[in-house]
């Protein structure tokens, strides 16, 4: 297994393959700035929650020239920010449950957003783990050549975490099997 590209995004910084990308905005606004700079033609971005926006822009920047067979992501707090947003729509006395918010109350939705955009009809998986390192054995086991009949060559894998508005971090990699 080898990593060919990597991106790290925090609310104040973006580092692509070790090079800092200069951004003006911070937090959620920075994700919009990245979208406008690197994507631009996918208005569905504006319907996404922060976790999906984060994973989506990170994937878009990484996958410019690479097609992946699978998307395997993880984080620590699942979809808790979206869960809280949805809860606000069902508070007692103000009960208007929002289907648009409810759909984002699953962390694997971000893998679905990436799969739709990049036409990934291979595996998409989402794990909730204590720390990013815990994903390593899962990736190793998933990419193991001995097991895969469908032969995974390239995987988009990594950590996408968003616990509160404007608090997030992502570290995504393209991993090759040889």
């Amino acid at each position: 297994m080898r990593v060919t590209h990597q991106i790290e995004i925090s609310p104040t910084s973006v580092v692509l393959d070790g090079q800092t990308i200069v951004v003006e905005a911070v937090g959620d606004a920075m994700l919009v700035e990245l979208y406008r700079r690197y994507v631009c033609d996918y208005p569905k971005f504006f319907k996404m929650d922060t976790l999906s926006r984060l994973g989506f822009v990170a994937a878009e920047i990484l996958l410019k020239e690479t097609k992946v067979d699978a998307v395997i992501l993880a984080n620590r707090s699942a979809s808790i920010k979206n869960d809280n947003d949805y809860l606000a729509t069902i508070s007692e006395g103000r009960y208007y449950p929002s289907p648009a918010l409810f759909v984002y109350t699953l962390p694997n939705i971000v893998t679905g957003e990436i799969a739709i955009r990049r036409h990934v009809q291979g595996e998409t998986s989402f794990y909730v783990l204590d720390k990013p390192d815990d994903l390593d054995p899962i990736i190793r086991a998933t990419m193991s050549n001995d097991l895969q009949s469908s032969n995974l060559q390239t995987v988009l894998a990594g950590w996408v975490e968003c616990s509160e508005p404007n608090r997030f971090n992502a570290k995504l990699q393209i991993i090759w099997n040889n």
């Binding site: 759909v103 939705i109 893998t111 679905g112 799969a115 739709i116 009809q121 291979g122 595996e123 998409t124």
Partner: peptide, 13 residues
Amino acid sequence: QAGSIHNDANHLS
């Protein structure tokens, strides 16, 4: 014996 996961890459819900 075997397991497989695939995305439709079509729609979220």
